[in-house]
């Protein structure tokens, strides 16, 4: 398993309708954690503010509380043996649930996947996926 590294990004909380139509840079990885909550990797605060301009009360905050690693197909298969729920078949997709008993998320892209969890869980996730 690759090492889990801190994922630097932005947490953006805004109204679901605004996030539904928000435009993000092509190079950004945008994870919709909840209808009103986004974790955007690779976007600047200015871009986030622009994306959520229709919601003046949006919260935009630096986020370094997640750690993660990119997985190839074989590594994802290994991780999947530690998951009791069905992975979505659609791509891209964000899946959230327990991985090896640890609350985690999987951003499933076409040819790779980002495994991430909140940093307080990192040590256990690494240990359990060994």
């Amino acid at each position: 398993m690759p090492a889990l590294e801190t994922l630097h990004g932005l947490r953006v909380v805004a109204s679901p309708a605004v996030l539904d139509t928000a435009l993000w840079p092509d190079n950004a990885t945008v994870l919709r954690l909840a209808p009103d909550d986004v974790f955007a990797i690779g976007a600047t605060a200015e871009q986030a503010a622009h994306a959520t301009a229709a919601d003046p009360d949006a919260i935009i905050a630096d986020e370094s509380g997640f750690v993660g690693c990119w997985l190839d197909a074989g590594q994802l298969e290994t991780v999947a043996t530690h998951i009791e729920w069905h992975l979505p078949t659609q791509r891209p997709a964000l899946a959230q649930g327990y991985v090896a008993g640890v609350p985690a998320k999987l951003w499933l892209d076409t040819d790779r996947a980002l495994l991430l969890c909140a940093s307080p869980y990192a040590a256990d996730l690494i240990e359990r996926l060994k």
């Binding site: 947490r11 909380v13 805004a14 109204s15 009103d36 909550d37 009360d57 949006a58 919260i59 905050a61 986020e63 370094s64 509380g65 909140a118 940093s119 307080p120």
Partner: peptide, 12 residues
């Protein structure tokens, strides 16, 4: 109510 809530417990 018109509020947004962001949990920062594990971010900070």
């Amino acid at each position: 109510l018109r509020v947004h809530v962001l949990d920062r417990t594990m971010s900070l």
